[in-house]
Amino acid sequence: MATSPSQTAMPTERSQSSRVLDKAFVWLTGAFAIGVGFVLLAIAFRVGTDALPAIQKFGLSFLTTSRWSVNDEVFGALTQIYGTLVTSFIALLIAVPIGIGVALFLSEDYLPPRIKQPVVFLIELLAAIPSVVYGLWGIFVLIPLLKPFGIWLNTNFGWIPLFSTAPSGPGIYVAGIILSIMILPIIAAISRDSLVAVPAEIRQAAYGLGATRWETIFQVILPAAFSGIVGGIMLALGRAMGETMAVTMVIGNSNSISPSILSQGSTVSSLLANQFAEAGGLQVSSLMYAALILFGLTLVVNVLAEIIVRRFSLKL
């Protein structure tokens, strides 16, 4: 105030104080915006430092051994990493074709908008149902329902390693199927968005050249929407790898690797869910190591998805 020439009185003075307030406000919001990015860094840093003792002790053998013994303080997460990858793969195998089918169904003009909107809403609802409710449903409905099917697979195709064990109820295949239900809405929604975004002129041009509806879809529309669909699939994969509760409740939580998808298993997230609350010492550190691996895996998948989706949206 002393610096300002005194003759211009109130107006400038008020505008000066409000200018300071204005600047402070912008700075404040900026700090919070950068804080969002900082949260991500904090997660990586904190989980990483807590995992350090286990990283130093086991190194990369943590990824390649499957012994998880609390008493001997020897930990390896191969079973869980394998379980995470296999359940996610099964989920994608089921959810990708059905999800793209649903997306096509909802992006073509099969239904009048009045019916289409509720269907879109219903499929979005699938994504909003809590994971633990899927788990409950999985335990009491899906497992009994799938068991005869598992037994049939085992008796008729038991010579294939994939089906070589007798199902005992919970198992990797149940987890894969429940995951497929949970990621289906993501694939359907994002694929639909990218299909709808394909300019109508392209479709009309294809029709004008005499192409049928499905020739147009396969040769024109799907290729145009391809990167968006792939981005959606990647996002769904990230979700499937990190999904915890439903998987924990139906996978059986055993610590042995079997080539058979009918056998029980566990995933990185189910390991964390089961052991964290009662863990201590090096076990906590090993669990943090496992969490870090999961974080890294999903990070790579999500960043790739993000880049693919972005490149796609720039092109249109």
Binding site: V36, V39, A42, A273, F276, L299
Partner: peptide
């Protein structure tokens, strides 16, 4: 950049966030 990081943050598995909150 911040939007990008926000999207990545929303993809972090909830169980990993649990582990972070446990440590923090």
């Amino acid at each position: 950049t911040i939007n990008f990081l926000t999207n990545v943050l929303s993809g972090v598995p909830s169980i990993v966030i649990g582990a972070f909150a446990y440590a923090f």
